[in-house]
């Protein structure tokens, strides 16, 4: 299992692995928001938590189509499915690798981008905490979407259409934590819901992803 994780991380870091693309996308999106809605500090401060969450979500989404598709194209998935590793572990590890290469950098970059968006001082902590709790769910849910569409030639757009509705609860609770934190409100309920969604997704969705992947490998 470690071998698979190490291989995926190594592949992401090597040339053409796409590491940092999600991060760059996140940066560009954040720069474009003030350019499109105007530079008023009060306006930016009020939308900053939501923009950061939406940006992180879209950056995650855009990197999903390489998650399983590359292994599908070169036949690695066939070989992994016949290897002693359960497919459930394979998809979990793939999701973990995706989180490490995409989700975690986004979490770390969010406070920096928060400065650009005039995020209130109290909000930094909660933006980071909510993203830290929420991005694993985004990776795991995204893996399910990637597994659903892995056999399709032009699956990228369809996958976005399938995955985005599944992202909604995570987005709502995550952005709510960040928004409430930023204006100094109490965050406990959405925080617990967000943590619950992440925990449940991590625990249960790999089974669905593996089942779907098996169907696609037939």
């Amino acid at each position: 299992m470690n071998a698979l994780l190490l291989r995926d991380l190594r592949l992401a870091l090597r040339a053409g692995g796409g590491f940092g693309l999600g991060l760059a996308f996140f940066l560009i999106l954040t720069v474009m928001v003030p350019l499109s809605v105007g530079p008023q500090p009060a306006l930016l401060a009020s939308i900053a938590p939501g923009v950061l969450w939406l940006g992180a979500l879209l950056a995650c989404l855009l990197s999903l189509d390489r998650l399983l598709a590359l292994d599908w194209e070169d036949g690695s998935l066939d070989l992994l499915a016949t290897a002693p590793l359960p497919l459930e572990s394979v998809v979990s590890i793939k999701a973990l690798a995706h989180w490490i290469t995409t989700g975690l950098p986004l979490v770390l970059a969010a406070p920096v981008l928060g400065v650009l968006l005039n995020l209130p001082v109290g909000g930094f902590k909660w933006v980071v905490i909510s993203l830290l709790l929420g991005t694993p769910a985004l990776s795991v849910i995204g893996t399910f979407g990637a597994a659903l569409t892995v056999g399709l030639k032009r699956g990228g757009l369809l996958m976005s259409l399938l995955v985005m509705p599944l992202y909604l609860p995570t987005l709502i609770f995550g952005a709510e934590v960040a928004r409430r934190g930023a204006i100094g409100m109490e965050v406990q309920t959405p925080l617990l819901m967000l943590a619950g969604i992440s925990a449940a997704s991590i625990a249960l969705l790999p089974f669905a992803s593996a089942a779907v992947l098996r169907i696609n490998l037939r």
Binding site: L168, P169, I172, M193
Partner: peptide, 15 residues
Amino acid sequence: VGSVFALLSRYAVNF
């Protein structure tokens, strides 16, 4: 899977 997330969304937007 969508049913579970649709229910969650329903609760989430209520909140």
